[in-house]
Amino acid sequence: MFKDQIGKRSNKVKNAVERGAVKKFAEAIGDLHPIYFDEDAGRLSRYQKNIAPPTFPRVFEYGVIEGLHLPNIGLIHGEQSFHYERPLFVGEEIYCYSQVKNYFEKKGNFGEMGFLVMENCGEDSEGNVIFTSSSTVVISEAVRKVLAK
């Protein structure tokens, strides 16, 4: 039921790598290292600024994909990956969008499971890709039936 969505993408959304948000996120994953929040540690580092943890892009907004309706319950996060060209810097602006990469169905223990692969992308203001991330979401037959109604 998501096959016809493959290839669709959202418009780019500007996101700031906010100092306070990075600190709060680092704290929430128990990784309150000075490189993420201490300005001196940032200045003295090879980057001369603070960086963000690798899973920080979870915080960004990626825009809306027209016509893609996902329930916020009943989805199972199956796989997740991130690819970086360099770390994210605190204070920079990142332009983010999302696209439907793939959808397929496979017989599993709980009936015909649906696998939706979404790819997110973050670029700097010159359009250079800084990171991409991919999530595989598993949608059970039961949830798809509800969606189809």
């Binding site: 090879r46 690798p54 199956g78």
Partner: peptide
């Protein structure tokens, strides 16, 4: 949250930030 666990796991690498960076990080829940 699966991403809470994934976020936590990455901290094994944090202290090495002067030597390099996490280029690829992929996991299965």
């Amino acid at each position: 949250h699966g991403m809470w666990t994934m976020g936590n796991l990455a901290k094994l690498f944090t202290e090495y930030y002067e030597e390099g960076f996490v280029k690829d990080y992929s996991i299965r829940f």
